[in-house]
Write a protein that binds this DNA or RNA. Structure first.
Length: 476
RNA sequence: GCGCCCUUCGUCUAUCGGUUAGGACGACAGCCUUUCACGUUGUAAAGACGGGUUCGACUCCCGUAGGGCGCGCCA
């Protein structure tokens, strides 16, 4: 196999819910490795559990991957559609004497487990039918096929992240590979699919480490080459325990709705369990160039929203205005109140948004915040004034507005710098601090006490609207 | 219970036997300043514990403690 030449990785989610953050990182690693080595990343939907799988989840996963910018190669493969082939392999194993029929009922097995637990013994299938004569089989019972796992020695997993992991074979019991209804089980399906799909590198969560041992045994039994394996540590919540919904076990679409940029999320996720020296902020291109399996850590990482937010703010600030505007518009359908806002955005408003973007993006960590601070652009006269802004519009504040209004109205050019010069000149002439004029202006122009630079606000709003808003507050 | 794995500032991490243990987020303080931010300067902050091996251990070995994952006719 020429795996060194062009590796084939795969991302294999089961469609029982959204694409959660751990899955997203696994996909990112698979994607980065494939892209960085002129390989392919395949996508396989592990939908063999008909009870729990659903088409909506498939859509959510595909949508999540696309949003994150992780395009897979070829068509997504349904594992369910390949069940015949899996069963075929199970029978091949049976024929070769590497698997056998087991007639134990689910009830018997449950009892076996309970007994083992009560006696504080390892919970394993006891091998009842491993060597028993099939002619002693109870009538009318449909058997399962169990894999004849080696009972002695050990199974070794050569893992890029975990190192050489040795599992004693005595701890691996004879797993069911084909159910009594003739359907294959997970570990068999995975091996057959990965083999048939030509997967050379498996990158997945460490929760699959024990499966890796069982799968290795199946590869060996079939005489197939065991793929290169990497088991990445899991992502934990801020408290070190399992990721809960409160924390970050959300679908990536939730991150989209929270106003995170795909590029920022990619960067953040890449740094969770992987590093390239001291590099913190890097482009996706750099990630692809730098990503290596050897750089993956063994210990779990905690998900830190604060750091994600910081990174996201960095990406927002450094993104070209037009590009950010496009992302912002694409984000709106996914956030509360966004569609309504989107409906109000015509070409004129787009131009305003674009003009306001330099001031807006400087103080937004998320697109949600960007949306909030852009609210002044959409506000209708007379503006709603919040409490802090009201306090600024006291007698002193109103007096400042009254003094400013005619001066601004007489401005020959309605742009930030000339307007700033006018206000500054007036402040100097009267010996009053600039803030005494800027804050009332802010209150009148935006209805709030915080906003982008006030002269930019003035400029973006336009002469008529700005003077109107100032006039509204002078009058009251 | 059994097996596997993990343990460096609060968090993400660098270090691959010899460093004043570095960076980033966060925190705190200063500067900048029309608000909020940005930016900038600085400060505090770590090798779980106990034994070895070694001239020398964060780094290698053993043990202890704590934590994670796995142990389905789920994937």
């Amino acid at each position: 196999m020429s795996s060194a030449e062009s590796p084939v990785t795969r991302f294999a989610p089961s469609p029982t819910g959204f694409l959660h953050i751990g899955g997203a990182r696994t996909a990112l690693f698979n994607w980065a490795y494939a892209r960085g080595h002129k390989g392919k990343m395949l996508l396989r939907i592990e939908d063999t559990d008909r009870e729990r799988s659903n088409p909506a989840a498939v859509d959510a996963i595909l949508d999540g991957l696309k949003w994150l910018g992780l395009e897979w190669d070829g068509e997504a493969i349904s594992q369910y559609s390949r069940m015949q082939r899996h069963a075929e392999v199970a029978h091949e194993l049976l024929k070769a004497g590497k698997a056998y029929h087991c007639y134990c009922s689910p009830e018997e097995l449950a009892a076996m487990r309970e007994k083992a637990e009560a006696e504080k013994r390892p919970i394993r299938y006891d091998g009842t039918w491993r060597d028993r004569d099939p002619s002693t089989a109870p009538a009318g019972v449909k058997p399962v096929i169990r894999f004849k796992s080696p009972q002695e020695g050990e199974t070794v997993i050569h893992d890029n992240a975990q190192g050489r992991v040795v599992i004693p074979n005595k701890d691996l019991d004879d797993l069911i590979i084909l159910r009594s209804d003739g359907n294959p089980t997970y570990n068999l399906s995975v091996v057959v699919d990965d083999h048939d799909m030509g997967v050379t590198h498996i990158i997945r969560g460490v929760d699959h480490l024990t499966n890796a041992a069982r799968q290795t045994q199946i590869y060996l039994a079939m005489g197939w080459q065991v793929p290169n394996m990497t088991h990445v540590p899991l992502i934990h919540g801020p408290d070190g325990a399992k990721l809960s919904k409160r924390h970050g076990a959300l679908g990536v679409e939730a991150y989209r709705a929270m106003g995170y940029l795909p590029a920022a999320l990619r960067n953040y996720l890449a740094r969770l369990g992987w590093s390239h020296g001291d590099d913190e902020i890097f482009s996706t291109q750099q990630l692809v160039e730098w990503f290596s399996l050897e750089g993956i850590n063994k210990s779990p990482a905690r998900f830190d929203f604060v750091k994600l937010e910081n990174l996201n703010g960095h990406y927002i600030r450094h993104m070209p205005d037009a590009e950010l505007l496009a992302d912002f518009l694409a984000f709106l359908p996914h956030v509360e109140g966004g569609p309504e806002l989107l409906a109000k955005i015509d070409d004129t408003m787009k131009a305003k948004l674009l003009a306001a973007m330099p001031g807006l993006k400087e103080r937004a960590k998320t697109l949600v915040e960007l949306k909030a601070s852009a609210a002044y652009l959409f506000a209708q006269r007379p503006l709603a004034i919040d409490d802090k802004a009201k306090a600024l519009l006291n007698d002193e504040g109103k007096a400042a507005l009254k003094a400013l209004h005619p001066l601004l109205a007489a401005a020959p050019e309605w742009a930030a710098h000339p307007l700033e010069a006018i206000v500054k000149a007036h402040a100097e002439a009267t010996g009053i601090k600039l803030g005494k004029f800027a804050q009332p202006l802010r209150a009148a122009l935006t209805g709030t006490s915080t906003s982008p630079g006030i002269f930019d606000v003035l400029a973006v709003l336009g002469r008529e609207e700005a003077l109107g808003r100032i006039g509204d507050q002078m009058a009251t």
